[in-house]
Design a protein around this nucleic acid. Structure first.
Lengths: 162, 162
DNA sequence: ACGACTGAGTTGCTTGACGCAACCTTGTGT
DNA sequence: ACACAAGGTTGCGTCAAGCAACTCAGTCGT
């Protein structure tokens, strides 16, 4: 995105997109939600330019979507965690995931599935467990690799467990 | 967004964002969903550059999210409508709307509300009617201006009825 | 008859965000 | 002493976005 503001828009969707509508931002949130917490890990996983990742992380911290915590002193090294505000993006991510699965399906099936931690049931596009019917939140669910997750290089994505 | 592809990403969220993650795209979808169907109407409402609107509409048509229909001959004039694929973005838009309302609230209250056409109940962040409990889709709901929709120039947004 | 207006774009120029590679800093391993 | 690791920052070139002006076909006002 060129500029991240939409002047004259009084809509909450527009205000949301001012923050999370920038290129890479929502994918960074997704990765952090899936347990990728460190700079290099995010950079390699996404293939995003390092300077861009750096500015995105700063913006996400300013907006109180991410939090940076040092995990060692010496040379200080940091990890990024989602705040409550960040975790609340989960329903939107789930909706986008299902929209992609439904309308641009890969022949092998979806590359990632979301399951309810409690009962193992699949999670619907509305973030509801299809097995037990509960309305779920970010912490109630985890991603599992789906049938479409076959990579040419043979490496599996490292975001399976949590 | 500069380029609209995220190479090496096998995730459906990334694939969704390749299409609808570009600047303005989701706001165009929102406006068409709210009954804005013509080029100039969209351009004035959004304040987007005309060339950018033009390329976005073409892309959305290619991706089968919008459909262009002539509403008069003579000089041919067109209207844009959402396809089923486009209408299916509704849950994602609802989720973003609620996220914005919850985490960056305007002092006056939300500028736009979504209500269930059937019973008039408010629609939750998961697209569920809070009054009757039904799971809703795009056609079951309509936007109504909320308490936050006071504009300095006195003009109300023209997307009240449908 | 002539000019202004409308809807739906297209063209050209300028700005600025993004991608890429190189560099920096603090500390550890060999 | 040299390389390596993590977490960035800096500089440069390219390409998308913003802006204004222009086009084109038809209609309206005087």
């Amino acid at each position: 995105m060129l500029r991240n503001d939409y002047p004259d828009q009084v809509c909450s969707i527009a205000r949301s997109l001012e923050v999370i509508g920038e290129r890479w931002t929502l994918l960074i949130v997704r990765d952090v939600m899936n347990g990728r917490r460190r700079f290099d890990e995010l950079q390699k996983g996404l293939g995003v330019a390092r300077n861009v990742l750096s500015t995105r992380l700063q913006r996400l911290i300013e907006e109180d979507i991410l939090e940076r915590r040092a995990y060692q002193q010496g040379p200080e090294r940091y990890e990024y965690f989602l705040t409550e505000k960040g975790l609340d993006l989960w329903p939107a991510l789930v909706a986008l995931l299902h929209w992609g699965d439904r309308h641009s399906p890969s022949p092998e099936g979806p590359p990632m599935l979301i399951v309810h931690k409690g009962c193992g049931g699949a999670v619907s596009d509305r973030g509801i467990c299809e097995s037990c019917g509960k309305l779920l939140h970010a912490r109630d669910a985890r991603p599992v690799p789906g049938p479409g997750l076959e990579r040419a290089d043979g490496k599996a994505n490292a975001i399976t467990a949590r």
